[in-house]
């Protein structure tokens, strides 16, 4: 399973896991799961558009991912975020369909854009992925504190001069970058699963944010490595393995959190329990 043609798959899969683990932590903390689902799908439109114009796929994808991120941020200033995300997503997919209608014989390519083609990664795809992923991770490291502040205490952040809206835009750009780094090789759906499952599970095991990010990266790596190994042995699609392992990790995390809650009674609590957000 470490044969020559698999080496690139291991490298690119690991890059995707690291960037998804880091960026996904904030996706989960900020409740941006929908955006994390929508932006990778811009890959599809970007790739279709790029093949129509005969330009590089990564460039087409990056352009569409960034444009969607900025569009969602701009429209989200005035409208509901989930609504704006949904509309941007369908507009993207609709445009992708328009591009595709000019091309025939594309079904297999769609399948691999959605579900990835990890096992067939070529060497010249490794470097661009690594560079873009590196930029995304450095960006998260540099904006870690203000991003955390606006994610958990937006009003207090605003009062301190951290504009929530600007941070939201920067964050969406980072998600777009992470997407561009990983989707051409791992697929839109796999990237989404990686950005949700491992980070959501990691929250259940530790109270410290930095430890949670580290654990999130570790769980994402384990997910990808296990998936690659099983995919190689059993010839199952990687997307299936990543999706189900990610979900399983989340369920285990939830069970662990529930168990821990039931077995620890913290003494000395004063005052009423904090209100939980109402479900609208």
């Amino acid at each position: 399973m470490f044969a020559g043609f698999m080496t690139n798959a291991w490298i690119v899969g690991s890059i995707a896991a690291v960037v998804a683990g880091v960026v996904g932590f904030f996706v989960v903390v900020r409740g941006s799961a929908f955006v994390a689902h929508a932006l990778p799908q811009s890959a599809f439109t970007g790739a279709a558009g790029a093949s129509l114009l005969g330009i590089s796929t990564v460039f087409g994808m990056g352009t569409f991912a960034l444009a969607s991120a900025l569009g969602i941020a701009w429209l989200g200033k005035r409208g509901r975020h989930d609504v704006v995300t949904a509309l941007t997503l369908v507009m993207l997919l609709g445009t992708g369909e328009l591009f595709l209608s000019y091309k025939t014989e594309y079904a297999q390519a769609i399948y691999s854009l959605l579900f990835g083609e990890v096992l067939g990664v070529s060497a010249n795809e490794v470097l661009p992925s690594a560079v873009v992923a590196g930029v995304a991770i450095v960006a998260v490291a540099l904006m870690y504190r203000p991003l955390m502040l606006t994610s958990v205490l937006p009003d207090m952040g605003e009062a301190r001069g951290v504009r929530s809206h600007r941070m939201e835009m920067l964050f969406l750009v980072v998600v777009a970058l992470a997407t561009t780094a990983a989707v051409p090789v791992v697929g839109a759906l796999l990237m989404f699963s990686l950005m949700i499952g491992p980070p959501a599970a990691s929250r259940c095991f530790t109270d410290s944010p930095l430890a949670a990010i580290a654990l999130s990266v570790a769980l994402a790596l384990v997910t990808v490595w296990a998936s690659l190994a099983i995919a190689y042995e059993r010839n199952w699609p990687v997307g299936f393995l990543v999706g189900t392992i990610g979900a399983a990790l989340y369920v285990i995390g939830r069970l662990w959190a529930a168990w821990r809650q039931a077995h620890t009674v913290r003494p000395g609590s004063v005052g009423l329990a904090p209100e939980t957000a109402p479900a609208h």
């Binding site: 540099l142 904006m143 504190r145 955390m148 951290v162």
Partner: peptide, 11 residues
């Protein structure tokens, strides 16, 4: 976060 939450850059 109250101490340096508004600052960009590495902690």
């Amino acid at each position: 976060l109250g101490l340096d939450g508004h600052r960009f850059g590495l902690s």
